[in-house]
């Protein structure tokens, strides 16, 4: 019981932003049917935007967080308009789009170093207070981040499932031609979705950034895990992504309690690969709707 409680509390508090990031990536995957590697940099830039607002303009963390989300959303839309829409119009193949997104990822990751500097940058936040639950220690900040992530994930979920915009996004993802015939504006709907996805990624990055630091490799270091959560959990829609994200956090912390952290990550990756292999392409179409 003690072990389970520890695994759950540590997993949920430490990996909460993973759920947000995975939801953002899944939104793009659902609509564009392609994995956007540059999403890693949306996460990274979210962390930098938050840090920039927090340290340069002395904004408190929550204001920085909101602005980081908005700016990351705008950046996400810009990447769609400049790069991915052009690729779509030119009929570029799936592998090539993935490589293009890798190029964009590299471009942004190194480009941001000219703007924000080469070294890691830190948020200026008051020191957190330490708490304990079931004998497991965590910071007030981790608790706040967890609660905020749960609320935001719920809002994202409700937006996609219950609002008119969400229905339009899902309609466009299911059958673009039919959606257009029924009066949906594909560009506007796509931009709304890319904005939401970017905002989710940016917020995740800001949470990760304030927990450690804003550095160029922040998003890339977490990209693979986010991608695997989307590919495995995405077969069950956004609910599946949320569950897979939380499950991954808990499993990773459980493994880290038993074995060395790096070996724990290896075991988790091997488990994900096996799931991908066993699942094959059977749920592929389901995953994209």
């Amino acid at each position: 019981m003690d072990f389970v409680a520890k695994a759950v509390i540590i997993g949920l508090t430490e990996q909460a932003p993973l759920v947000l990031a995975a939801m953002g990536m899944a939104l793009i995957y659902n609509l564009s049917k392609v994995i956007n590697v540059a999403f890693a940099e949306t996460i990274t830039l979210g962390a930098y935007f938050g840090m920039w607002m927090n340290t340069t303009f002395s904004a408190n963390f929550y204001v920085s967080l909101a602005i980081a989300g908005i700016l990351a959303g705008v950046l996400s839309c810009a990447t769609y308009l400049v790069v991915f829409r052009t690729a779509e119009r030119r009929g570029v193949g799936t592998v090539e789009v993935i490589i293009i997104s890798l190029g964009l990822s590299v471009l942004l990751r190194y480009g941001l170093q000219f703007v924000f500097g080469y070294e890691a940058r830190f948020y200026d936040t008051p020191p957190p207070t330490f708490m304990k639950l079931f004998g497991v220690g965590f910071t007030s900040f981790q608790l706040t981040a967890f609660i905020l992530v749960v609320v935001l994930a719920l809002l994202f979920y409700l937006f996609v499932q219950k609002t008119v915009w969400g229905r339009q996004v899902r309609a466009l993802a299911s059958d673009a031609d039919l959606a257009k015939v029924s009066g949906i504006n594909p560009l506007l709907t796509t931009l709304v979705m890319w904005f939401m996805a970017g905002a989710a990624g940016g917020l995740a990055g800001a949470f990760w950034g304030v927990g450690s630091s804003a550095k160029p490799g922040l998003g890339w270091d977490r990209f693979l895990l986010t991608l695997l959560v989307v590919l495995v959990g995405g077969t069950r829609g956004l609910r599946g992504v949320i569950l897979a994200g939380m499950g991954t956090g808990v499993l990773l912390s459980a493994l880290k309690l038993e074995i060395a952290p790096l070996r724990a990550e290896i075991v988790l990756l091997v488990a994900f690969i096996l799931v991908l292999k066993l699942r094959g392409n059977r749920f592929r179409e389901l995953a994209k709707v």
Binding site: Y29, V34, I35, V37, T94, V95, I98, L224, L227, L228, L231, L262, R263, E265, I266, L269, V270, F272, I273, L276, K277, G280, N281, R284
Partner: peptide, 20 residues
């Protein structure tokens, strides 16, 4: 028997496992 997204994830995962 994976699509391109799965190939991206699997090959990246192999490289990450070697690194880790």
């Amino acid at each position: 028997d994976l699509d391109d997204d799965g190939v991206l994830a699997a090959t990246l995962a192999v490289a990450t496992i070697v690194f880790l």
